[in-house]
Amino acid sequence: MVISFEEVSYRYRDRGMTPILGLDGLNLELEEGRMIAVLGAPGSGKSTMLQHMNGLMRADEGLVRILDFNLESGDSRKIPPKLRQRVGLVFQYPEQQLFEDTVEKDLLFGPLNFGWSEAEAAEAVRRAAFFVGLDEALLAQSPFKLSSGQMRKAAVAAVLAADPDILALDEPTASLDPASREDLMQRLHGLTKAEGKTVIVVTHRLEELVSYADDFVVIKGGRVIFQGTARELVHKQEVLEEAGLMAPSSVRIAGTLAAQLGIETPEMLPDAAALAAWYAGLLESQS
C-alpha cells in the first residue's frame, strides 16, 4: 500500500459562517505502480484530497499514510522535505506557476531545493524533459515564449525533475487540444509502466483515461463512492451522474441498442473496437 487514508476529515473554516466539509471520513487505499484516475464534480473534495498527500493540508481527523510517512491529525510538526520530494504535486494550470527566466532554471528549482548537487539536478532535468517530450533546445528559452502545450509539458517536467515516487496531477489536460491530451496521458502511463511510479490524475473527462488508468476512484461530498476498474465504472450510471461524467459513447450506443433488442447491456471495454466486435457477434448469433 503506497497511499492510505483512514477516516480522514477536513473542514474549511474560513468560508462564511459555517465550516464547509472538504473531506468527510474519507477512506482510500491505493497501490503502488499504478495509474489512478480520481473523478468527481467540482467541490467534491478531489483537490482537497490531493493536497493531503504531501502535507500541504493536514487532516482534522483521521490518519493519512503516504509511503513510509504517517501524517496524523493534530500533529503540527513540520512536513519533512523528503515527503515533498517523493510526492510530486502538479496543480491546475501549472504553466501559470512557472516563474524563472528560463525553462531550465525552473526545472532545476525543485531538485536544488531538495539539496541535490548541480550535476545531479541537471541530469534529472534532462531526464524529466525527455519524459514529457520537451525538446532540449527549449530549455534555454523563457517559459513565456513556449506554446501552451509546451508550457504545460515544462510545468509537469518541473515537478517530475525531483524524481518523485508518486506524481499527482490536478486536471493536467484542461484546455489542451485532443492530441496533446492523448500524448500527455500516454507519457504519464509510461511513467507507471517503465519507472514503476504511482500516477494519480484528477480529471473530469472519463474518455481520455478509460484506456490508461488501472484504477478509478469517484469522490462525492468528501467520501469515496466508487473504486474499481473502467469496465465496472462505465456501467454505473448513478455514479457517473454524481461525478458530472457521461457514459462513454460506446456504452451509450450499446445500451440503447440492447434496450431496443430487449437484451441485457453487455459489459465491455469502452472503445470502438469492442463495440464493433460485440455488434458483429450479435449479427452472427441472429443469422
Partner: peptide
C-alpha cells in the same frame, strides 16, 4: 491564484 502558486512551490521544496 497567489496561494496556489505558493503551495505549488512549497510542493517543489521551497522553504
Amino acid at each position: 491564484e497567489a496561494e496556489r502558486l505558493w503551495k505549488a512551490l512549497q510542493s517543489r521544496g521551497l522553504d
